[in-house]
Amino acid sequence: MGSYYDIDAILTDAQKVPCTFELTVPGLGYIDGNIGGDMKQGSKVELPLWLGEMLAISQNLSTSSLVTLDLPSALSPRVLNALKADSRTVDLRALAPYFYNLGARILELYEEEEMVEVLSEAFKLRAAVIADQAHNPRGALGDGADFLRGLDENERQLFRAAHDSAKSVRSWIAEMTKK
């Protein structure tokens, strides 16, 4: 995985995932807005990924784990179906700013062969559009604006990379002509 100081990895881990408490925890009600109360068994809470993961996989003295991790809404079957149908129209940024990183982290915990396929295909298809937009000087302003707004953080870096490399070649040519 990424470096300890990788901001993107930290922000990925900070994304919320739905968790269900399997045990009643005294005094933990403040997470759910119930200050001073207990966390009831079976209550659903949104926890950051790092915390939810820790609690879900840690096996304490009793055999059951403290919480179960549910699939975040960003990776629900509804979203995957939309990606399968036409990945270019999905606003990934609204679903999760680090959509693909979140997907990769969830895939570490769940075995979802199909999700890998869907995410890879969507990433590839969208990458082709990103490349076209990055080389189109009016891309960020014209009709591509909606698509570009829906890019997740990975795709934004991709857009920047494609745009910058095209720009550096153009500026080399321009600089040579100036001399």
Binding site: Y100, N101, G103, A104, L107, E108, E111, E113, V116, L119, S120, F123, K124, A127, A131, A134, N154, Q157, L158, A161, A162, D164, S165, A166, S168, V169
Partner: peptide, 21 residues
């Protein structure tokens, strides 16, 4: 040189998604 950053980025992204598999 022009394509390197983009193509490398795509492959990195795909690798990240497929890492668990």
């Amino acid at each position: 040189a022009e394509g390197r950053a983009f193509i490398g980025g795509v492959i990195d992204g795909l690798r990240k998604i497929g890492a668990s598999r």
